[in-house]
Computed example of a mutant assay.
Amino acid sequence: MAVQFTRIDLTAYPVDEGRRGQLHQGFCQSGPLDPYAFMLANALCGQQSGTAIEFIGALECEFQHPALISITGAAAEITLDGQLQLPWQSLRVERGQRLVVQPARLGSKHYLAIAGGFDFPTATGSACLVRREKQGGLHGDGTPLQVGDIIRSLPPGNGAIPGELPVWLMPDYQEAVNIGLVHGYQHQWLSSLQWQRLYSSEYTLTPQVDRMGYRLTGTAISLPEQALYSEAIALGAMQIPPDGQPIVMMADRQTLGGYPKAGTVARCDLNHFAQCIPGDKITFYQLDADEARARWLLKLSAIKRWLSH
């Protein structure tokens, strides 16, 4: 089975669950920006994991063989041969049919999955594309997908096809979000006044966003001038650089960093944060690590219950 891309407005990357056990070698973890949408895209194709296409901007492709696919992510107009389709569902396509996905907001992230997964070469244990490392992609050199590329898929498995995602599992992506923050490595560097400023202020996502990190602008956070050795950076870590404007590190973040880290975006809220685009308003609230973990496990449990019915 194969898919040919006939339109890519901005970017289209192959992603899987990311690399494991490679940070000490200097390779970033990578993986999907919105892990929740990625996970459900694969679930709707009857598989626990697989390689999907993460894209920003409009995408158009033609199927050269019958297939089962799904499209997840923020709001978008989806058509198959001009006929409107719903997101967050299993969708059967025939040979020669043309799929068009037009996002409602430029900059939002979407996922195209196919039963069996797309067949991309792997590097350091992952099919993820990382441009600065020049790894991944159709040619294994970190080049994003291009118009005219033909992507083959692997044979589908025997997993049950759930059909359509129930409403209670669909994320409600908003232009203004309140994000849980788990206190980080240097949380004690922030005085009570600085924490009050952080949690009572509204931040705006700047145009300086990519798969490596999201820069925010708003009330500056002042920290004492202290020397800090570079150390490992977790997914969602909020760094505070000298100008006091937070930077949240995302999937393609570097492995080490020397800025103080106030906290980490909770995994249960990461998908909502990842779907923000420049100009969106963001506030933060304190979330205990155990509570953050419990909320994420509840999300996973809800998906498991749905799939078992």
Rank of each mutant, 00 (worst) to 15 (best):
M1D: 06
R7M: 05
D9N: 03
L10E: 10
T11M: 09
Y13W: 11
P14E: 15
E17L: 04
C28S: 12
S30P: 00
P32E: 02
L59N: 03
Q64W: 12
I71R: 01
A74E: 14
A74H: 15
A75K: 14
A76C: 13
E77Q: 13
T79S: 06
T79Q: 05
L80C: 14
G82Y: 02
Q83E: 09
L84W: 12
L86P: 03
P87S: 12
R92G: 13
R95E: 15
G96D: 13
L99M: 03
A104Q: 08
L106Y: 06
L112C: 12
A115P: 04
G125Q: 05
R131G: 03
R131F: 07
D141M: 13
G148D: 08
D149E: 14
D149Q: 10
D149P: 14
I150F: 04
I151Q: 02
L154Y: 04
G157R: 01
N158K: 02
P166I: 05
E175N: 00
H183G: 06
Y185L: 07
Q186P: 03
S191K: 11
S192R: 09
Q196G: 02
T206W: 11
G213A: 06
T219F: 02
A232W: 12
A237E: 05
M238Y: 02
I247K: 06
A251I: 06
P260K: 07
P260T: 12
G263E: 07
I277S: 06
G279S: 06
I282M: 00
S301R: 15
A302D: 15
